[in-house]
Design a protein around this nucleic acid. Structure first.
Lengths: 191, 191
DNA sequence: ATTGCCTATGCAACTCGTTGCATAGCAGGA
DNA sequence: TCCTGCTATGCAACGAGTTGCATAGGCAAT
């Protein structure tokens, strides 16, 4: 489990309420770790009970009050321990890959629009990453350690999106080639 | 939920028992969809109840009997319907990225060996993919539709591993640069 | 005025996924 | 002989994650 650790990192970078964390998980962090507000609130309560984080009630006007959390000593210690533990292998869940293999038993052409939608959303994300890179790291020769680490993670996201775009183009070309075959395909496995 | 669909695809490619499916999920399929034998057995029972799959008892000697499942009509129909549904965006869980950002609040050097281990396991996987490609797709000009789709998924895996290896090298270079700085790093957020 | 959206937190119920354990026969090595 | 490991399936319990709903004030547009 690493949701606690992702939350700790986020709170170390900037203290915030559960609601704010949930929004961060919808944006930057969300691209390598997702969580809903339900999970976040529940985990925050547990973390507070364990003294991993400290909470402070912040009254607001015009808005509901909020509880602003920040990482506490025990949280930092837990994070340091976790960093030194061997890592769990990443669990991949690539639904589109399942669909592509499934298309062999159905009509490959039916997947084209789906893959195109994916392509567009990955292209949009790449554009957002590149824009964020320009904004946050305009001068890569003047970064402190913290920024260098954030930047290398961002570069990973950028390269992932580039790779994915190229692959989706490859997938589309394959699907179109198969469709252009006139719908004639191996039918041995069809009903 | 797509475990059902991943199982259906696997059974369409080749009927098998729960145990055999579990092993497939540890190998080829496991790289884009993971599942333990517990999940598989439970889901298979549900799928059998819904007539998505049909089971046949196969007595064996020297070994326990097994139940061999194959995809049934309702399963095929469900798969075809799922193919035409808009897809859920992939949920990424990139623990290493969390760790890298966490390293900003601890010692970046402590991550080096961890990243190196990752690098090795990705290199090994890439080698396995490339070997499998040579074995299964020696002549890419003579592939039927089914094989072309399997191949394009494999190409995706290969490109993913290549991209990841390059990124991990980038990460290692960054971590080493920071460590070579003599442990002097931004300390504004340290305890 | 009403509708809908945003901030902010939470409960309840559910499904998904993991972990530990159990059974049970057979095979192979120390 | 005992121990380990493989095939093959399963139960029980738990933790992770999702979904639907509720509250409640403020804001902006219709």
């Amino acid at each position: 489990m690493a949701l606690e650790h992702a939350i700790l990192v986020s709170l170390l970078e900037q203290p915030g309420s559960g609601y704010e964390l949930a929004r961060r998980f919808d944006r930057s962090i969300g691209r390598f770790w997702t969580a809903t507000h339900q999970q976040i609130y529940r985990v925050l309560r547990r973390m507070e009970a364990d003294d991993w984080v400290a909470a402070q009630e912040v009254p607001q006007d015009g808005r509901p009050d909020k509880k602003v959390y920040s990482a506490a000593g025990a949280g930092r210690a837990a994070l340091a321990g976790w960093l030194r533990e061997p890592v769990e292998p990443e669990t991949v869940r690539h639904e589109l890959a399942v669909k592509i293999r499934a298309a062999a038993f159905d009509d490959p052409a039916a997947l084209v629009s789906e893959v195109e939608r994916h392509r567009e959303s990955h292209a949009a994300l790449l554009a957002r990453y590149l824009h964020g890179e320009q904004r946050d790291f305009p001068d890569t020769t003047a970064l402190d350690a913290h920024e260098q680490l954030q930047h290398v993670v961002l570069r990973g996201g950028i390269e992932y999106e580039r790779m994915t775009l190229a692959w989706l183009d490859d997938v589309l070309a394959t699907l179109r080639r198969l469709s252009a075959d006139g719908g004639r395909r191996m039918t041995t496995d069809r009903v």
